[in-house]
Computed example of a mutant assay.
Amino acid sequence: MPSVSAVLGVPGATDVLGLGAQLAGVDRIAVLLVDGLGTYQIPVAAAHAPILRELPTRALTSGFPSTTPVSLVTLGTGALPGAHGVLGFTLRKPDGGILNHIQWKDDPDPADWQPLPTRFETATAAGVNVTQVTRPEFEGTGLTVAANRGAAFSGGGDPLALSTRMLAALARPGLVYGYHPDLDHQGHVAGVGSLPWQEAAVEVGSLVERLVDGLPAGAALLVTADHGQLNVPLEGRFDLGSDPVLAAGIVAVSGEPRVRYLYVEDGARDDVIAAWRGVLGDAAWVLTREEAIAGGWYGPVPPAHLSRLGDVVVICQGRAVVVASGWEPPAAGRLVGYHGSVTAAEMTVPLVIVR
């Protein structure tokens, strides 16, 4: 979004991706985010959406954790996760409750939880017409406000409505952002490459084709994703809810199965780290909060955001997950496809540019 803003003439915006030469003369840009369409998934999806192999694609790297709330706010603000504060799928609030960013309404206040201006706000303030098109039920949610405030809302409940409303917004100069969630959903519940996932890939192909065919003069389409995805076999699952060694000393759990945040009893951190390293072995990196921050995963983390991270950060490797029965809904441990960690399959995302 900083680069798109720069192309559209927003003062102070920096073209960090070097899009200016390729988009010279463009005065209206559509950015489509296809949830779950990582670079490593494109060859599989292209068998059912041929247009994906026909369009020139470059690779970008998602933020960390490589999960939807983190990436959507990173996209919307152009800032690293440490700065915007949305540091995981779920996070512990100051009152001890767990915030699920996907189910977030207005507690906490999105403007307090995510304090940075969005690129939509700065573009609107510069006189650029900005529209977001996504599911009608997402209007006004905490995540939508945190990531996309400043953009006029237009509800599009299916791929046809999404493409129609995005193209309508391109009738005038400006920026339109569209979000399509179905590929990610089918990857979670049925697995990458499954029949439902293939059917969702066909829809993605049709959506992109309609946008490409309908682009008006002076317009460009950018297609990207928030993360990739990988299937995890049953033997790759650890359950802290049923393993007393993993559960010892834990007072709260957040994050998601590929990246866990553990909040521990006073004085128990070292014992928890030793226990988790002993059980998980090479299946995960088990780090202190300070080690994770020093490793640069989040960028600089201001003091106000430190407590959102667990005392212990568990980053799964290979095809492993840590489920948390009793701590979170059972469905989270029954998924097929997961993401959030640092593998290339999860963090490498495409950038497709069409004029």
Rank of each mutant, 00 (worst) to 15 (best):
residue 4 V to R: 14
residue 8 L to V: 06
residue 16 V to D: 11
residue 26 V to F: 04
residue 36 G to D: 08
residue 37 L to A: 00
residue 46 A to L: 03
residue 50 P to Q: 02
residue 50 P to D: 05
residue 51 I to L: 08
residue 60 L to V: 08
residue 64 F to H: 00
residue 69 P to W: 09
residue 78 G to S: 08
residue 79 A to C: 10
residue 84 H to C: 03
residue 87 L to T: 03
residue 92 R to E: 10
residue 94 P to G: 02
residue 95 D to A: 01
residue 97 G to N: 13
residue 101 H to D: 07
residue 105 K to F: 11
residue 106 D to V: 08
residue 114 Q to K: 10
residue 117 P to T: 12
residue 122 T to A: 04
residue 124 T to A: 14
residue 126 A to Y: 06
residue 130 V to H: 07
residue 131 T to C: 07
residue 136 P to T: 10
residue 139 E to H: 10
residue 141 T to H: 04
residue 142 G to C: 03
residue 142 G to P: 01
residue 146 A to H: 06
residue 160 L to C: 15
residue 163 S to K: 05
residue 164 T to F: 12
residue 168 A to S: 14
residue 169 A to W: 06
residue 170 L to R: 07
residue 173 P to G: 07
residue 175 L to A: 08
residue 176 V to M: 09
residue 182 D to T: 15
residue 198 Q to P: 06
residue 204 V to C: 02
residue 206 S to Q: 15
residue 209 E to S: 14
residue 210 R to V: 12
residue 215 L to I: 02
residue 218 G to P: 00
residue 225 A to N: 01
residue 226 D to E: 00
residue 236 G to K: 00
residue 241 G to Y: 09
residue 245 V to E: 13
residue 245 V to M: 12
residue 250 I to L: 06
residue 253 V to E: 10
residue 255 G to W: 08
residue 256 E to D: 13
residue 256 E to S: 10
residue 257 P to Q: 07
residue 257 P to N: 09
residue 258 R to M: 06
residue 260 R to L: 06
residue 263 Y to P: 08
residue 266 D to Y: 12
residue 269 R to S: 03
residue 280 L to Y: 12
residue 283 A to M: 00
residue 285 W to P: 09
residue 290 E to K: 06
residue 301 V to E: 09
residue 301 V to K: 11
residue 305 H to V: 14
residue 306 L to D: 11
residue 313 V to W: 05
residue 337 G to T: 06
residue 338 Y to L: 01
residue 343 T to E: 14
residue 344 A to G: 11
residue 345 A to L: 13
residue 346 E to V: 11
residue 347 M to R: 15
residue 348 T to N: 10
residue 350 P to S: 08
